[in-house]
Lab assay of single mutants.
Amino acid sequence: QRITLKDYAMRFGQTKTAKDLGVYQSAINKAIHAGRKIFLTINADGSVYAEEVKDGEVKPFPS
């Protein structure tokens, strides 16, 4: 399943989102408010992988 960072954070909370991605909650808040195009893939085992689309390139998040 693929979902935006904002939607994932709204569904699970910023604290869990940060923990799942290995970053601080403040980084999640800042990324959402900056309007960054970050998409999360939720794997069947429950693990989460995030990618950011920037300038036409897709890069892992966090980099």
Rank of each mutant, 00 (worst) to 15 (best):
A9D: 02
D7G: 06
A34F: 08
L40R: 00
H33S: 14
T4D: 06
R2Q: 11
D7S: 06
I38W: 01
S47Y: 07
I3P: 04
M10K: 13
A31D: 02
K59W: 14
R2Y: 09
A44T: 10
A27K: 07
K19C: 08
V58K: 09
T15K: 14
N29M: 12
P62F: 05
R2S: 08
K54R: 13
D55L: 08
I32S: 01
E51W: 07
I28P: 00
I3F: 15
A31F: 10
D55T: 05
A18Q: 02
A50Q: 00
S26H: 12
N43S: 11
T4Y: 05
K16S: 04
H33L: 15
N43K: 12
Y8Q: 01
G13T: 03
R11N: 07
K19Q: 13
Q14P: 13
T15Q: 14
R11M: 15
V23F: 04
G35T: 05
T15N: 12
Y49E: 09
R11A: 11
A9F: 07
A27H: 11
I28K: 00
D20Y: 04
Q25F: 08
Y49R: 12
V48E: 00
D7A: 10
V23C: 09
K6V: 12
L21G: 01
P60S: 08
D55P: 06
A31C: 05
T15H: 14
P60M: 06
K19A: 13
Q1C: 11
L21E: 00
V48W: 03
Q25M: 09
F61Y: 12
A50C: 04
K30E: 15
N29L: 10
V23T: 14
T41M: 12
Y8F: 04
L40W: 00
G56T: 07
F61M: 03
F12H: 12
L5N: 00
A44Q: 11
A31T: 04
K54M: 15
R36D: 08
F61T: 02
T41G: 05
P62R: 04
A50N: 01
E57H: 13
G13Y: 01
F39G: 01
L5S: 00
A9G: 03
V48M: 08
F39W: 13
H33P: 02
Y49K: 11
Y49Q: 09
R11H: 11
T41Y: 12
S26P: 10
V58S: 10
I3K: 03
A18G: 04
A44I: 12
L5P: 00
T17I: 05
F39T: 07
K30G: 10
N29H: 14
T4L: 08
S63T: 11
A27S: 11
D45A: 05
Y24N: 15
T4S: 15
A44H: 11
D55K: 09
D20W: 03
A27Q: 14
T4M: 06
V53Q: 09
S47N: 08
V58M: 10
N29Y: 14
A44Y: 11
G22V: 03
H33N: 12
A34Y: 10
I28Q: 00
V58H: 07
D7P: 01
E52A: 02
F39I: 08
Q14T: 15
T4G: 08
E52T: 03
L40A: 03
D20I: 10
T4C: 06
K30H: 14
N29T: 14
Y8K: 00
A44M: 11
A31S: 05
I28S: 01
S26L: 09
I42P: 04
L40F: 03
N43D: 08
D55M: 08
Y8P: 00
A18Y: 02
T41H: 09
G56E: 07
S47D: 07
A9S: 08
T15E: 15
R2E: 05
I38S: 00
L21A: 02
I42C: 07
G22Q: 07
A44F: 09
A44G: 12
A34D: 15
T17R: 01
